[in-house]
């Protein structure tokens, strides 16, 4: 059995059932979605399922992940000590824009394993950056007053002391 997925731009992606099964929203649509979820439900295979919030580029990337995990279970929970498989880390990469798109799509499509991986990817990109570097990366303004910034710097000092009390 195959299912057609339709991206935001109208591009069609024909995927096998095991691949589609990785996508929670598609699974719900194809095999009896709760009507109240409000997703378009395919009445037959040829109609397809529209994923209006996902661009073709991101959908194609997501389907690579689904294909990889069609026969095995991905990590769905973890902490900072959890090691992710090498394939996962190579897949998610270090491009913050791309990862954010994947994260938003994984959230929208209900793909817990990919959502966790995208969060891990973002965390890895943030690791080791100073506050200014993080703001530049995310395009946000440091909105503390100068006094508060000084306080926060001081509290940085506290933590340095807490973490390495010599």
């Amino acid at each position: 059995m195959s299912i057609t997925l339709i991206s935001k731009e109208g591009a069609q992606f024909l995927v096998s059932k095991p691949v589609a099964d990785r996508i929670g929203v598609v699974r719900d649509c194809a095999y009896g979605a709760d009507f109240w979820l409000g997703y378009a439900v395919a009445t037959d295979d040829s109609m397809g399922i529209t994923l209006a919030n996902v661009t073709s580029s991101i959908l194609s990337k997501i389907l690579v992940w689904c294909e990889h995990y069609k026969d095995m279970e991905p990590l769905v929970d973890g902490d900072s000590n959890m090691e992710f498989p090498e394939w996962d880390m190579a897949y998610i990469g270090h491009d913050m824009n791309q990862i954010l798109f994947v994260l938003e799509a994984a959230d929208y499509l209900h793909i817990p394993g990919l959502l966790l991986l995208a969060c891990k990817g973002i965390a890895d990109v943030l690791d080791g950056r100073n506050p200014r570097g993080i703001c530049d990366l995310l395009g946000i303004v440091m909105d503390f007053s100068h006094r508060q910034e000084v306080d926060m710097d001081k509290e940085n000092g506290y933590w340095r002391w807490f973490l390495h009390p010599t």
Binding site: G78, L115, D124, M142, F144, R160, L163
Partner: peptide, 23 residues
């Protein structure tokens, strides 16, 4: 999602850096 990302940072020091960026 923000909390999940922060919980995956590798060290407390990175959490401090994020805390210092914006309210």
């Amino acid at each position: 999602l923000l909390v999940l990302i922060l919980s995956l940072l590798s060290s407390s020091w990175d959490l401090v850096n994020v805390a210092c960026t914006a309210r």
